[in-house]
Simulated assay, not measured.
Amino acid sequence: MVRWEPGAGERLRVAALELYVRQGFEQTTVEEIARSVGLTERTFFRYFADKREVLFDPQNLLQEAFLAGVNAAPPTAAPLEMIASALATSAAFFPDDRRNWSRQRQSVIAANPALKERELLKLATLAAAIAEALRARGVAAQAATLAAESGTTVFGVAFTQWIADGEQRSLAAIEHEVLGELAALTTGLATALDRGPA
């Protein structure tokens, strides 16, 4: 009989990542993952569509956090202020005690081209959802797309720094710093554009 145990999904997730790190993603089977925590393949598939989803299934929760941040921004907020709100809200999705998990997960993804492609698709899907949320708040289509793409770029740059060896700062602090760098870049560009073409 298949056991439906509390916490089984998280146990499978932890076991899968440990196996992926130790012996490689391609070399790890669903049967091994399930067996390592005393469960069956059938139980695994109740939680995850396939072994990739162990690494990607929280995507909807992350997207919801970003969208909640966009919607929490004040009515008068500019597009990038909404993005700043989204980044701040989503940073709570990555507490410090999740940093080691995220480092290991990223190492598995980096070693597998198909997983890297899936990660890029995840970010593209996130950017599209953020752009749609911005448009729903009255941001013009092109500005919404630029702001959403900028936001996911800031997230990606900050996340890479957050999981770097020796990094101790929170994701929120790093995102704030990267946003500041983006603001400095856009200020310089605005000045150059105001001068007109050479």
Rank of each mutant, 00 (worst) to 15 (best):
R105E: 02
W162D: 01
T191M: 06
R137P: 01
R195K: 02
I163C: 03
P95N: 13
E149G: 13
F155L: 01
T125F: 15
D96F: 09
T145G: 12
E10R: 06
T145V: 14
T76S: 03
V178S: 01
F45H: 10
R46V: 09
G166Y: 13
V154Q: 05
V30G: 11
E181Q: 14
T43W: 09
V30Q: 15
A16G: 10
L179H: 06
L126P: 01
G9C: 09
H176T: 14
L12Y: 04
V37H: 08
P6N: 13
A78E: 05
V2L: 08
T160Y: 11
R135P: 05
R105T: 07
A15F: 11
A111M: 03
F56I: 02
M1S: 11
A129N: 05
F159W: 03
R22G: 10
S85D: 11
L61G: 15
V154W: 01
V108F: 08
L19K: 13
G9S: 12
A192K: 08
A110T: 02
V37D: 03
R46L: 08
A110G: 02
E32V: 02
A86K: 06
K122Q: 14
T191C: 05
P75N: 01
Q104H: 10
L189E: 15
L67Q: 11
V2Q: 12
Q142G: 08
V54A: 13
D96V: 02
L115Y: 09
Y20E: 01
P75M: 08
V30C: 12
A184I: 07
G24M: 06
L126K: 04
P95I: 10
V21M: 15
